[in-house]
Design a protein around this nucleic acid. Structure first.
Length: 271
DNA sequence: AACGCGCCCTGTCCGC
DNA sequence: TGCGGACAGGGCGCGT
């Protein structure tokens, strides 16, 4: 569900209010959400720790708990937010993090594809090193993109979604970026030309930046740290628009399946 | 080694 | 109205 813009929006929200807080207690309601250790150990180790910072790496929320880290991956339907006075009882609470100041940070997840795990600074560095390039960093350039695509025959849409290559681009923004770039999502990565690589680069950067401005895309479940939906859904040009007219040429948007996921594109504009 | 597939899970929607 | 199947923003582990 959440891709880079949604995770970035959540992180920006939490980063304004969480640092300086202290974890008073942790209740794990769904133990299968915890990676690599028991729920009891997870709760015990977090108890009493400070929250120093909240950042994003790829589609993960990275919380510095005083030298160690708490990572949260939201999977498809995960939410991480501060419970507000008068909120209805959550339907699928997963982990409740009680802060010393009385607030409660809730991890909520209907499908439970999300994961939370603690790691040492060293483990975090090792794991971080296996992730691909941040698309909104200086390391992501048209030249890098063209070079990196030489090594793979997979379809460019699948290629863009592989977090070992470029991070943060998921099923929505992969389709959207390729539409903006006017590149067919089925094109083998190693057949992408330099001009196409330049356009894909621009498409990825532009769509992610704009989606962050609109606080992400809410199709169904996504909510930011304040519980509010994102507004970028109204700006989607191809995703979930099968059968509707292309905004550029007015021909029909198609849906195909790649790697078991839907891809939306305009066969006329994206040759 | 790279790649494709099945699977993890719950909810919703659509056709019959 | 009920039921089965398809599908939903992600990512891992498996076999080839």
């Amino acid at each position: 569900m959440p891709e880079l813009p949604e995770v970035e929006t959540i992180v920006r929200g939490l980063a304004t209010t969480l640092p300086g807080a202290t974890i008073r207690a942790v209740d794990v309601l769904k133990p299968d959400l915890i990676e690599e250790e028991s729920a009891a150990s997870f709760a015990r180790e977090l108890k009493g720790r400070p929250i120093r910072s909240v950042e994003r790496r790829a589609k993960n929320i990275v919380i510095d708990t005083g030298g160690d880290f708490l990572l949260v991956n939201l999977g498809m339907t995960g939410r991480l937010f501060l419970v507000k006075e008068g909120d209805p009882e959550p339907t699928h609470p997963g982990v409740r993090i009680h802060l010393a100041d009385g607030r409660e940070l809730l991890y909520h997840d209907v499908r439970r594809f999300g994961r939370l795990w603690r790691m040492s600074a060293e483990a975090w560095e090792r794991w971080e090193a296996t992730l691909g390039v941040e698309p909104l960093s200086d390391a992501f350039t048209p030249k890098w993109l063209h070079g990196a695509t030489r090594k793979s025959r997979v379809a460019i849409k699948i290629w863009l979604m592989d977090q070992k290559r470029v991070v943060g681009v998921g099923n929505i923004y992969a389709s959207e970026a390729l539409f903006r770039a006017r590149v067919n999502p089925r094109t083998p990565a190693d057949e992408i030309t330099r001009p196409q690589a330049k356009r894909i680069h621009q498409g990825v950067v532009d769509v992610l930046a704009e989606a962050i401005e609109f606080r992400g895309t809410t199709l169904l479940d996504y909510r930011d740290a304040e519980g509010e939906p994102g507004e970028f859904v109204r700006r989607l040009r191809v995703y979930d628009r099968e059968g509707e007219p292309c905004l550029r040429c007015h021909r029909t948007i198609n849906r195909i399946v790649q790697g078991g996921r839907s891809t939306f594109f305009c066969p006329h504009c994206q040759k």
